[in-house]
Computed example of a mutant assay.
Amino acid sequence: MVTSSSSIPSIQSAASAQSRAVPAVLALAFGVLLFLGTGFAAPSMIHNATHDTRHALGLPCH
Rank of each mutant, 00 (worst) to 15 (best):
P23F: 05
G58T: 01
A15L: 08
V22C: 06
P43N: 04
G58Y: 00
G39M: 08
S19Q: 06
V2E: 03
A56R: 07
G58L: 00
A14Q: 01
S10V: 10
Q18A: 12
S7M: 06
D52R: 13
V25K: 15
D52V: 04
A29R: 02
Q12C: 05
F30S: 00
G37F: 02
F35A: 10
T53S: 07
V22Y: 03
I8N: 11
G37R: 08
A41N: 09
P60M: 15
D52I: 15
A27T: 00
V22L: 14
S4K: 06
S6W: 02
V2G: 15
L33D: 04
A29K: 11
V25T: 15
L33K: 09
A17D: 02
S10A: 13
A56Y: 06
C61H: 03
C61K: 15
F30I: 08
I11G: 00
N48G: 01
A15Q: 09
A17H: 04
L57S: 01
F35P: 01
L36G: 06
H51V: 14
V32R: 05
G39P: 00
V2T: 03
S10R: 06
C61V: 12
F40G: 07
T53W: 01
V2A: 12
G58V: 00
H47C: 06
A24Q: 01
F40H: 09
V32A: 13
V2L: 08
V32W: 09
S19C: 10
S44W: 15
S7F: 13
A29P: 15
A21N: 06
I8H: 12
A21Y: 11
